[in-house]
Every structure is written in C-alpha cells, then in structure tokens.
C-alpha cells in the first residue's frame, strides 16, 4: 500500500512534529517513508507544511501535487491549499479554527474535528498536532496507534517520557473523533 499526506497549519501548531511522528511510526512498522518539509520562501509568513509518503514498497516521489489526504489546521491553510486534495480524497479539518462553509468541494470525504477544544480538554492546547496525527492514522490505517506510541518512546529523551501518556490520550482522541 501507498499513502500520501499533506499537513498544513501555522508555525507553532506542530505540523512538522506530526509529520515526523507518523513517519517514524511507519519506519517502526518496517515501511518506507519520505518526509518532506516545506522549505524556502514557503516557510516565511508563519505557514508550516509537510508532505509524508508511506509505502510498503518504494516511496517514489516525495513530492505530491494532489495528495490523497490533506490535514488543515488553520483557516489560511484551507484557503490557500483547499484545492490541493486529490479528487475524491480526504480532508481532515481542525474545525476549532477552520470554517469550511464557503468551501465548494463535494467530491471529498471531509472530516471535521474540533482539535483545539479536544486538546484543551485534555489539558494542553499544544497537543492539536497529536489529535491530528491520531485522526489521520485512524482514517488512513497507514500506521497503528501503538506504533505512534512506540515512536514517541523512541524519539523522546527519557526525561520527557512523562509527557507520553497525555500525548497518547490526544492521539486516541483524534482517532476516536474519526471513528465516532
């Protein structure tokens, strides 16, 4: 199987971290993956974005013109990159910050999740990206939630392992929001 994902939001929402975490989880599962952050002038103006491709075989292009799934964490992202999702693809929207009522894409599977609210309810608004990662993992089936937990353990220094339970709660909440 082959999955491609585009995540976008503003700097500080942990867009790159979410992409990294999903990638690392895929590596733990023995899959191939490419993680391509936005670079260059696109990085300016506070926008953050990355493209992740997960594949059982060769990754092929790390650059995707029309990704099958896009995750929009803020309004500007949707306004700017709303047309990017592949026809018939999936859009996962942070409905706490994004109003998509004026958006005319009826070919998509649109999933609206109030990520900021969920993250705040769990105690830290900064976990929006974890909610998003959980939602994508559950929706796509690309990586297991256990792999995300394993990824957190592998990449976080020991002294920060105390944050893992809260982050996993956020990941599960994101996953739950997709299924619910």
């Amino acid at each position: 199987m082959r999955y491609d994902l585009f995540i976008t939001g503003f700097g500080g929402q942990g867009v790159l971290l979410a992409g990294n975490l999903l990638s690392y989880a895929a590596i733990i599962e023995g899959k191939n993956v490419s993680f391509l952050p936005a670079y260059g002038v696109e990085k300016r103006g506070g926008a953050a974005m990355c493209t992740v491709v997960i594949a059982d075989g060769e990754v092929g292009s790390p650059v995707i013109g029309r990704p099958s799934t896009c995750v929009y964490l803020n309004q500007t992202s949707l306004d700017r990159y709303g047309a990017k999702v592949k026809d018939g693809g999936v859009a996962i929207i942070n409905s706490s910050l994004v109003d998509d009522s004026g958006w005319s894409r009826d070919d998509l599977d649109v999933i609206r999740i109030p990520m900021n609210r969920i993250a705040m309810d769990l105690g830290d608004a900064r976990m929006v990206n974890m909610v998003a990662a959980g939602a994508y993992a559950a929706k796509s089936g690309s990586v297991a939630l256990e792999s995300l937990e394993q990824a957190l353990k592998s990449v976080l220094p020991e002294r920060n392992h105390r944050f893992i339970p809260a982050n996993m709660q956020a990941i599960r909440a994101g996953a739950g929001a997709v299924q619910g």
């Binding site: 790159l16 990294n20 975490l21 830290d124 990449v155 944050f163």
Partner: peptide, 11 residues
C-alpha cells in the same frame, strides 16, 4: 512541557 525543537532533533 514537551519541547518541540528538542523533539525534532531527536527524531
């Protein structure tokens, strides 16, 4: 809390 830049370096 979780330090994002640090996390990025580790990963």
């Amino acid at each position: 809390a979780l330090s994002f830049p640090e996390f990025m370096n580790e990963i």
